[in-house]
């Protein structure tokens, strides 16, 4: 089963990478970009018997650093 983990910086945390992307979009002449935040997408191919609790555990123990990041789990087909 494919599961996607979206890792994003928490709200108050400065994102210099997002700022650089924003700046580059401005430089290319794109209008109306209010803000840019960059994150990570991690795709897991999991056996069917991996529980939700185990996926949560993977996120907390390695995939996200919860001091600075949030994560969202999206279970696919």
């Amino acid at each position: 089963m494919k599961t996607r983990i979206f890792v994003t910086l928490k709200g108050g945390v400065l994102d210099p990478q997002g700022k650089a992307i924003h700046h580059a979009l401005d430089g290319l002449g794109f209008q109306g970009v209010n803000d840019v935040r960059a994150g990570k997408l991690i795709e897991l191919d999991l056996a069917d018997d991996v529980s939700d609790a185990q996926i949560e555990d993977m996120c907390r123990k390695l995939l996200a650093n919860t001091v600075i990041e949030n994560y969202k789990i999206e279970k696919g087909a």
């Binding site: 945390v13 210099p16 990478q17 700022k19």
Partner: peptide, 17 residues
Amino acid sequence: LTEAGLLPGALMRNAGI
């Protein structure tokens, strides 16, 4: 050490990139 939980906080990308 921060990633291992031995020290608080985290080290992020430099603010000036």
